[in-house]
Simulated assay, not measured.
Amino acid sequence: MRAAVYHGPKDVRIEEVADPRIEQPGDVIIKMITTSMCGSDLYLYNGEVEELVAPGHTTLGHEICGEVVEVGSAVNRFAVGDRVTFPYSVSCGRCQSCRVGQTAHCLTSGKAIYGFGTAFGDLGGSHAEYVRSPLADDHLEHVPDSLPDDVVPFLSCNLPAAAIAVHAAEIELTDTVAVVGCGATGLLALDLIRRHTNATVYAFDPVPFRRKRAEVLGAVPMDASADAVDTSIQAVLDATHGLGVHKVVEFAGRGDAFDLSVALARPGGTISGGGVYLERDHPVSLFDMHFKNLRLVLNGFANAHTAQRHAMQLIENNVIDPTAVLTHRVSLSELPSAAEQFTTREEGFLKALITP
């Protein structure tokens, strides 16, 4: 089969690799119908987590709409021909972590993540014609007929992550809110937030076209580029009588974005961090957080399985249309060039749908 194989920083190649096979009785093999690129894929693409991957071996991707083409002998919930999706991480539903909703920390799977390298289970990714899904009965989900193929990959990561972060922020009707990071997941979160509050929502991002997207959704666009961010912070403080916003929902996943979130939050405010932080040595001001009495909830390693069915309902009930952030459609063979467009923040690029 063809798959996107990591060979080094910004060197992903579409190559012929061995087809996945049933390895355990609970496995299924899925044929990819559609998949997509997530912002967290760029950490691998750019070589920022080389200790996690095996060059020439690791295949990428963790979002999917697929068709079951083979089932293991112990699989009961799925049959050949079923249309399915999975959360980005594999979970058993029975271990101590899963029983308290921490499915991304499943003890049975060892925190296995599709397409995220040898350190996370060495599972093949969804940027391939076929993928093996272990513990299928426990974490795979049937896809309702009402959901089209181009919507389904959002259920693996983006939309559950957005819903989890918004829920954790506990936004009230009159709360002012700042969204930091207006990529695909941040914009989905912003769309949900507008349904929770009648107050002002500020959208911070350094990329102009992303701020324009946020403005269309009803937010006040704020420039988060290095030479403008201090002015933007002051504008929010001026508009909130020097206090800052009640809630911050962060999806940039960088140290400077976290610092911005702390600066924007008012005393007693909440920061709900949905970004994926990989910086291990970024200095954090405990002083500022302590003396502001901030409530901090981090959700970057999102327990997507716990929110996946809720995300389905949001789409089925026409609460949200995630394809609004889908800007590009490419074939698997075009994935390397699309990944380069994504990482350089080419004008107009938010998210790409990938077909075989």
Rank of each mutant, 00 (worst) to 15 (best):
D11R: 14
D11F: 10
I14K: 09
E16R: 14
A18R: 09
P25E: 13
I29P: 00
M32W: 00
T34W: 01
C38F: 04
S40F: 05
S40G: 07
D41C: 11
G47Q: 10
H57Q: 13
T59G: 07
L60G: 02
L60R: 01
G66Q: 05
G66C: 05
E67L: 09
V69F: 11
A74Y: 05
F78A: 02
G81P: 12
D82N: 15
G101K: 09
H105V: 01
C106W: 00
A112Y: 01
I113E: 04
Y114L: 14
F116S: 08
D122V: 02
G124K: 03
A128V: 03
L135N: 00
L140I: 11
E141H: 14
H142F: 07
H142S: 08
V143M: 10
P148Q: 09
V151T: 10
V151L: 06
V152I: 14
P160R: 01
A165S: 15
A165M: 03
E170N: 13
I171H: 01
G181H: 08
C182H: 09
L190K: 05
D191V: 01
I193M: 05
R195D: 12
A199I: 04
T200E: 15
T200C: 03
A203G: 07
F204Q: 04
F209K: 01
F209D: 15
A228S: 14
T231W: 02
I233S: 06
Q234T: 11
V236T: 04
V248I: 12
E250P: 05
F251W: 10
A252K: 03
G253N: 11
R266E: 12
G269C: 11
S272R: 02
G273K: 03
L278C: 06
D281V: 11
V284P: 08
S285G: 09
N299R: 14
N299Q: 13
A307E: 08
H310P: 00
M312C: 02
E316A: 11
N317I: 00
S331K: 14
L332Q: 08
S337R: 14
T343H: 07
E347S: 15
F349D: 03
